[in-house]
């Protein structure tokens, strides 16, 4: 796969085909997240902590995807872009591709354990319960996650761009607004539905 396709697979795949691949990656990522204690609790959110429910990452993934579609489809219509619904649904499903790999970052359970250790700090007597080697490892893994998150944002952007053919400032400002609204909506759904 060429470098261009990694960041914009929608040049080749869109619509129902993208939705099918996207659904596979969403389910695969949710399964890995279930095994490796990851939560995708927002359009741009990722947390590692022991899960109470194995199905929660799948519910997160579906609610995030629904939030993206119900924000970006009407937004495209308002902007007069004449999008096809299945293109928005499919490209945004495939744009969640990085989340199929991110749970592997916590394959050893280090990040969820680290997160629990940080939560256990007694603020009255703050002593860091971590060893010297854990800090560079934590920073290294956060950088890896950051790369995946940047990839995710680029994929969201190209999904919106390909589905609407918007250009210039209209594309940039509407994308930023859409992501912010979808983020708020997804957090609301995740906290209030199936929580």
């Amino acid at each position: 796969m060429s470098k261009k396709l990694i960041f914009n697979p929608f040049v080749k795949i869109a619509g129902l085909q993208a939705l099918s691949f996207g659904a596979l990656f969403i389910i695969g990522g949710a399964l890995l997240a279930g095994f490796f204690n990851a939560r995708f609790d927002g359009v741009l959110d990722l947390h590692f902590a022991p899960l109470k429910n194995f199905n929660q990452p799948l519910i997160d993934q579906i609610l995030v995807w629904v939030s993206l579609v119900i924000v970006f489809y009407p937004l495209s219509l308002i902007l007069g872009a004449k999008p096809i619904f299945i293109d928005i649904a499919g490209t945004f499903a495939l744009a969640r591709l990085p989340f199929a790999f991110i749970p592997l970052v916590n394959a050893t359970g280090f990040l969820s354990e680290f997160s629990e250790k940080m939560k256990s700090i007694d603020m009255a007597n703050p002593v860091l319960p971590i060893s010297g080697l854990e800090i560079p490892l934590f920073i290294g893994l956060i950088l890896v996650i950051l790369v995946f998150m940047i990839w995710l944002v680029i994929l969201y952007f190209n999904a919106f761009k390909t589905s609407t053919n918007l250009k210039g400032n209209r594309l940039i400002y509407s994308f930023i607004s859409g992501i912010l609204v979808a983020e708020i909506l997804s957090i609301y759904f995740i906290r209030n539905l199936f929580a």
């Binding site: 929608f10 080749k12 869109a14 619509g15």
Partner: peptide, 14 residues
């Protein structure tokens, strides 16, 4: 051309 439907539609619109 081996492009997706919206890509070709965008080319046509342009």
């Amino acid at each position: 051309l081996g492009f997706s439907y919206p890509t070709v539609r965008n080319m046509l619109d342009d």
